[in-house]
Amino acid sequence: MEIKATINGDEIVKNINPNKRLVDFLRDDMNLKSVKEGCSEGECGACTVLLDKKAVTSCTLFAGQIDGCEITTVEGLEKTGELELIMKSFSKNGAIQCGFCTPGMIMSAKALFYKNSNPSKDEIIKAIEGNLCRCTGYNKIVKSIEEVRDGIEHE
């Protein structure tokens, strides 16, 4: 089927297999390797992307469903410069260890900021409740997001 969608700012018209999961479409057809697969059931959040600016797990959607929608991954945030502050905050604060959960974690944080530019610590914690991390214990991730909220810039 032919779909029309905006992926990371680019409008694409593409013939795709609509039955593929969105995660497979993004990784295999669009070569967006930031989208990671960790559990295939929407529980770990590694495959989180933005669907019309809302965080969704891309393993729980069919690719055909994004027709007419806007999809954003960290590759897209990098293009617009929106990744800069948050990625540096994560790096500086030691919020990235193995890094496998990181892109998904960043997308959840980004979705939160789209909805609420001044979230409380509890709101930050809730925004990443669906993003599992086994390395960091979340503390440094939460701190990184708080610093982005507070506009703290890192070299």
């Binding site: 989208v35 960290v74 790096s91």
Partner: peptide, 10 residues
């Protein structure tokens, strides 16, 4: 390695 991990490039 952390920036490349955040950028999805690792």
């Amino acid at each position: 390695d952390s920036l490349d991990k955040a950028r999805g490039k690792a």
